[in-house]
Amino acid sequence: MLEVKDLHVTVEDKAILNGLNLTINAGEVHAIMGPNGAGKSTLSAVIAGKDGYEVTQGTILFEGQDIFEMEIEERARAGLLLGFQYPIEIPGVKNIYLLKAALNAQRAARGEGEIPAPEFMKLVREKSAEMKMDPSFLQRAVNEGFSGGEKKRNEILQMLVLQPKLAMLDEIDSGLDIDAMKVVASGVNSLRSADRAILLVTHYQRLLNHIEPDRVHVLVDGRIVKSGDKELALELEARGYDWVLEESAA
C-alpha cells in the first residue's frame, strides 16, 4: 500500500530524513518510535503532503502512485489522512461543515454523488457516539476551545467518517487520560481491516497495549535503524534507545 524508498528530506537546508525506507501492506498496523527530533513527524507530514519540506531524494508510492505528483487534498481524497500531533483550531468552521465537505470531496473523487443529508446525519451521529462525543461538538467550530483530549478525539472522528485507506496518527495518545485513551484506541481499532493500514507514531508502549501493531520501527536521525514485532516496543519501554543506537552504530 505504501512504499517509501531512500527518502531524503531537508528543511531549510537541514537534513532531517536521511535515506528512510518503509513498506506498509494493506491490513497492517505499523508503529514508529524514536527519540525526540528523530524525524517521525516529518515523515508523516511529508507523506501527507505538508509543504515546507524539500524532498531531495527518494520516492513514495501509495497504491503504486507517486504521491509527489499529488496535491495534499488529492492525497487525502485518495485515502491518505494524517491525524495531527497538534490539531489546529479553525475558528468559525463548524465540525459538521468540515466533515461533510471532506466526505463529499472524497465521494466526488470516486465519481459518486453527494451524500444525502439524512444518511450523513446518521453517520456523523453514530461516529460521534463511538468517540463518546456529544452531538453538540458537531456544531462547534473545529477544535476551537476543545481540550487537548477532545482535539485528539476529534481527529479520530474525522478518520471514522472519512475511512482512510492509510491513517497516520502522530502521537494521538499524548494528553489523553486513561478513559480517553481507550475510546481513541477503540476508534482506531475500528479502522482496522484487511484493505486498510494504520501508521502510529508514539513514544509509549501504553498505546500499543490497546492497538496492537504488526510491526514496530525505531527511527533515529532520519533513518529506520531497527524493526521488529510488538515485542520490540516492550523492549524499548524497558531499555530505552541507547542499545539500539549502539547496535546500529556497530
Binding site: A48, G49, K50, D51, E71, I72, E73, A76, R77, L81, L82, F84, P87, I88, I90, V93, L98, A101, A102, A105, Q106, A109, V142, Q158, L162
Partner: peptide, 15 residues
C-alpha cells in the same frame, strides 16, 4: 494554516 488544515482533509482550495 486553516486553508491547509481543510485541504489536508480532502477539501479543495476554493471550498
Amino acid at each position: 494554516d486553516a486553508v491547509y488544515a481543510l485541504r489536508s482533509r480532502g477539501i479543495d482550495e476554493p471550498m
